[in-house]
């Protein structure tokens, strides 16, 4: 079933919407949740919550890219679950390493004085991504949006793990400098 029809089912309050979503995007959502959480049970719960969340948010939302809309929900829910789990000292999947890498870009302080316009920051990151080649952009997004492991990215791009790590290092440094030049001191 194509996305337009799935979204229409949500708007018609037809419960087939959930089945159609699970059939088409269940595996995709599970892979995102599992990357973040590292365990199947938590990932499945987050994916079920994603369907509920989608049900509650359509209407009023009518997403233009359903996969990304669902991906964003499952990413957020899994991230919240991850934080809850780490408070309970239960480990995550790939996320702790990804967060470690992102530490290089930020001060680590979250004080209110450091007012950053998040919308402007997202815009700047978008412009940065736009300047990259599709392959580099895909490597960056695989790691920092989909939370894919280095080896998964390496296999997908026909690269060695070390080469992917090196590419990501350079991209992080490049992004850091790019943001600094535009006045974003994170």
């Amino acid at each position: 079933m194509d996305d337009i029809n799935i979204v229409r089912l949500y708007w018609d309050r037809n419960e087939q919407a959930i089945t159609a979503t699970a059939n088409k995007y269940g595996n995709y959502c599970i892979s995102i949740a599992k990357n973040i959480l590292g365990n199947k049970e938590d990932a499945e719960e987050c994916v079920n919550d994603t369907y509920l969340n989608a049900w509650n948010s359509m209407p009023p939302n009518r997403p233009s890219i359903l996969s990304t809309f669902l991906g964003k929900i499952v990413r957020n829910l899994s991230f919240n679950r991850y934080k809850h789990n780490t408070a309970d000292k239960r480990g995550g999947g790939e996320l702790p390493v990804v967060l470690d890498e992102l530490t290089e870009l930020v001060s680590g302080k979250d004080d209110l004085e450091q007012e950053i316009d998040l919308k402007e920051l997202v815009k700047a990151i978008d412009t940065f991504l736009d300047s990259l080649s599709p392959e580099k952009r895909s490597i960056f997004i695989s790691r920092y949006w989909f939370t894919d492991s280095i080896s998964e990215i390496a296999i997908r791009h026909g690269m060695k793990d070390g080469a992917v790590s090196m590419t990501l290092n350079r991209l992080r440094l490049k992004l850091h400098n790019y943001l600094l030049e535009r006045g974003f001191e994170l």
Binding site: S64, I65, R75, S107, L129, S142, Y144, F146
Partner: peptide, 23 residues
């Protein structure tokens, strides 16, 4: 900013790039 906050911010990047990476 914390790394967790930046991770959340990265979740809001343009969906066309996410779609491209998904493909």
């Amino acid at each position: 900013m914390t790394n967790e906050k930046l991770y959340k911010v990265l979740g809001d990047i343009n969906e066309k790039y996410v779609k491209e990476a998904k493909e």
